[in-house]
Amino acid sequence: MATQSTSIPVVCSDVTRQYAGSTERFGTSGTTVTALDSVSCEIARGSVVGVAGPSGSGKSTLLHLLAGLDTPTAGEILIYGTALQELSSRERTAFRRSHIGMVFQRFHLLPALTAVENVAVPLVQAGESRSARRNRATELLDAVGLEGRHTHRPSSLSGGEQQRVAIARALAADPAVVIADEPTGELDRETGEQVLDVLTNIAADRAVVIASHDEYTLSRTDRVIKLRDGCRET
């Protein structure tokens, strides 16, 4: 499916996303909303790219399209040569499982599971053995500085710790692309810096995309794609 040798892992060409009629997300009816309008970009391996813009500018929409959670109305999204828009929903889920890691603003950990179980979740459907899952999760939690917090549930972790668990989970399947939507949005400055340290460190052999409207967060990226009203600013 993916061709790891492709030099530029993420390529968006004239990507447009429109929502027609009533949608839960936009609360509109009878109209067509263009959330993203002919946006093109390339994200190289080893780089951290920021996506900036005010609320409603299309940042999250672009990230959802890159993650294969949504499909573009027009245009093309290539992840290591695979055109996401040509995949079925099931194929996109399978692709996401092995190639894309996601980090959310509100962490989105499973509250009933411990930190190590949360990190191991993406490996479950990959058919990894229980011990392999646990070893990998332990290794990743240690890597993001959460030694000794493995058996804690999200409710007993701080916001920064939860986000680091979320980053470890995003890295579990060793994805080529990590997408983070406002990863520091719920954190104080100091904790946010720690999380950004982790995110920038993992970019050595993968592409990292961070959507944020926080200037400091964007300053930690290699390059920023600015969006306004669904269009890319030049």
Binding site: L110, P111, A112, L113, T114, E117, V121, L123, V124, Q125, A126, G127, E128, S129, R130, R133, R153, S155
Partner: peptide, 21 residues
């Protein structure tokens, strides 16, 4: 392993829920 892992996740989620608020 996949089947056991997914089923186990369901069981662990129930168990975890019983141990949390």
């Amino acid at each position: 392993r996949q089947l056991v892992g997914i089923s186990g996740l369901g069981v662990r989620r129930v168990g975890g829920r019983l141990r949390t608020g």
